[in-house]
Write a protein that binds this DNA or RNA. Sequence first.
DNA 1: TGATTTGGGAGAGCACTGCTCTCGAAACAG
DNA 2: CTGTTTCGAGAGCAGTGCTCTCCCAAATCA
Lengths: 232, 232
Amino acid sequence: METPVTQSVRARARAEMTSQIKQKAREHLAQDGPDLSLRAVARDLGLVSSAVYRYFASRDELLTALIVDAYNSLGAAAEQAEAEVPRKDVHGRWLALGRGIRAWARGAPHEYALIYGSPVPGYAAPRDTVEPANRPVVLMLAIVSDGLGRGELALPTGERVARSVRADLEGIAAGLGYPDLPVPVLARVMTAWAQLFGAISFELFGRLQNGVFDYDAWFDYQLRAMATHMGL
Amino acid sequence: METPVTQSVRARARAEMTSQIKQKAREHLAQDGPDLSLRAVARDLGLVSSAVYRYFASRDELLTALIVDAYNSLGAAAEQAEAEVPRKDVHGRWLALGRGIRAWARGAPHEYALIYGSPVPGYAAPRDTVEPANRPVVLMLAIVSDGLGRGELALPTGERVARSVRADLEGIAAGLGYPDLPVPVLARVMTAWAQLFGAISFELFGRLQNGVFDYDAWFDYQLRAMATHMGL
DNA sequence: TGATTTGGGAGAGCACTGCTCTCGAAACAG
DNA sequence: CTGTTTCGAGAGCAGTGCTCTCCCAAATCA
């Protein structure tokens, strides 16, 4: 019942090399922008370009790996930030979640651009990415769900939601493990999710330059505004 | 006092060629994604690659020209859509504006990605782009300003805006020609602007695939939600 | 142990890219 | 008609993604 050590040596070397390539690629991405050069990565690792193809079948596959990693990294950061707030403080949990996501994005803007910027040409999101990509949304649903259970969520009233939208939202919520959330709440959460993404993108992509200077405060304002919108 | 016809011939030919290059570039962008190949554009025009450099100093400069055009195209589409609604119907004007922007984006997704996706590596927004880029925001301010004047805008109450945010927002509004709008209104308009952008980006970049199917209805819901948020 | 399969790096090479340079011809100006 | 400007052609450079062959060392099997 021993682990196959011999194979493990090779496997470990391979895993090591793979993560080294990804790491160098991330550095190049941060340094030289999104036009990632496989050859440059190989050079920095003392490799010849063709050697990299033993680990990634193409440049796109490398990028896909980086995208998957970025989704997971963002998801972990979001979950950790949110977890540090007492469960009963649903408003604080939302703020922490938003701030955590923004902090991660500011710390790794190129990886943020990778997953939330314009999609890469040849790239079609593989199955690996959809689950980690949903982690922040799942967190949002968990927060409003808790708020609802604790009676700390103001249910939206007078909400008119088209039937098709209702169906779509119910499908999404069911797929993410929250089949019982009221549709108006879902609608507002998804609206806030788009707002959050838009706010961060505006900041990181420089769309507010020479207009907003105190980005921290502006982002916080928006977080609170959407909290109110969601009834938190 | 005649126009210099002789020079005009050359100038016209040059303008013609310039716009042909841009047009073909747009087609390639739509066909083959954002990795625009100058040589391919030249080939399609029966030119050798170096000839293109008589018109654009670099690939980046061509892209910049396309970006400026895209901003203006979007601005014009937004203004036209908004103009078709009676002035007194401020709610309808907001809906028309949002739908117009989305329609333009869906009709030219690659140009939308060019201006609202991740920024191009070497590219720093030149002065030419900031004015056309602001046109949609100016429209939004015009709508809420009209709504305020006509008493059709519900002023937000209980809004707490940090001092630095207040200053930033006032600066933005003043720079866009609406120095007298109340800060809470401004804050909500800018929040809605980010939401609008986020909603369109999610749709176009496929971030809601297998979740939302009736994109029209979902977008309309969000537009109405943000209208309420702005007091329209 | 010895033979053999396998993994992975090196190197050459192909087609492509952005960009620069020189050259020549046409269009313009005086 | 002469000189100048404009602009396309072509060659060439350095870089790219990717493929192929070669080859060696390490792991596997007999």
